[in-house]
């Protein structure tokens, strides 16, 4: 188990220079990046939107419940929802979900290509398959996932508003007052750093699992699961490290 982790880590590090090698033909890579941006970004928009709206709603409702009967002003709920969403919920929960959706999809796609000899066929044509199949996915994710996370943060705050103001938990004025209190741009920076790091983790791990898959459909299924599990664990570890580095 431990030796496998070190073997995989070593192989992953040795594989990265091949992934970020000079492209053979920029226009082909650009075409692939555009396709991946569409697949990852547009393809994940609805799921991220739905999750974000409910996360915001649940956060607002639960904080309202916990603060009920305390002396803390009610507009604090808007403030807490905003910062919690920006710092933690939007980047981490969105990327955990994306790791499941996009990560398993990428691992299955590349693993399927390996099994059907598509990767061998490209290699024999002279294509650097690690670069052509992986780099566009990582670049597309690094661009699109932070945008999805920003959208998730906005939608989440909107979800909190919709769940609490129309239901009479507190007034719109109190919520907006909370949203506008003690705003720090640094928190948005933390969110963006997290989303970029998580995007790299979830795509590169999934690509790695798919690229080195060996065997048949059972192994492909395992690789797909492994991509999600490893991606999620690494995202949580990175979340802790980023929080430690950027907030202390």
């Amino acid at each position: 188990m431990i030796s496998k982790i070190f073997t995989d880590f070593g192989r992953f590090i040795l594989w990265l220079p091949k992934v970020f090698a000079k492209p053979e033909n920029l226009s082909m890579y650009w075409k692939e990046i555009s396709r991946q941006m569409n697949d990852i970004g547009i393809g994940s928009f609805i799921i991220v939107f739905l999750i974000a709206i409910f996360i915001g709603a649940v956060t607002a409702v639960q904080f309202a419940y916990q603060m009920d009967g305390t002396l803390i002003p009610r507009y604090y709920i808007g403030y807490i929802v905003r910062d919690m969403t920006i710092i933690e919920m939007a980047p981490t929960i969105s990327c955990l979900v994306l790791s499941g959706k996009v990560g398993s999809n990428i691992a299955a796609e590349i693993g399927g290509m390996r099994q059907k000899e598509h990767i061998d066929a490209m290699e024999i044509m002279g294509v650097n398959t690690a670069a052509y199949l992986v780099m566009p996915k990582i670049i597309a994710a690094l661009v699109v996932i932070p945008l999805l996370v920003c959208m998730a943060a906005i939608v989440s705050i909107l979800g909190a508003y919709l769940a609490s103001v129309p239901t009479g938990m507190f007034t719109g004025g109190e919520f907006v007052q909370g949203l506008r209190s003690w705003f720090e741009g640094w928190n948005v920076f933390i969110m963006l750093v997290k989303s970029v790091v998580f995007a790299f983790i979830l795509t590169s791990v999934a690509c790695y699992q798919g690229y080195f898959v060996k065997g048949g459909s059972i192994e492909l299924g395992k690789a797909s699961t492994q991509a999600v599990v490893t991606g999620n664990i690494l995202i949580l570890v990175a979340d802790y490290v980023i929080a430690l580095v950027l907030t202390t």
Binding site: K116, E117, H118, D120, A121, E123, I124, M125, G126, N128
Partner: peptide, 19 residues
């Protein structure tokens, strides 16, 4: 190796056409 491979064509058992 890549330069040599650009002079190589290969037909695979399962054809390996991109779906």
């Amino acid at each position: 190796v890549r330069r040599i491979r650009m002079q190589v064509g290969m037909l695979f058992q399962g054809s390996a056409l991109f779906d």
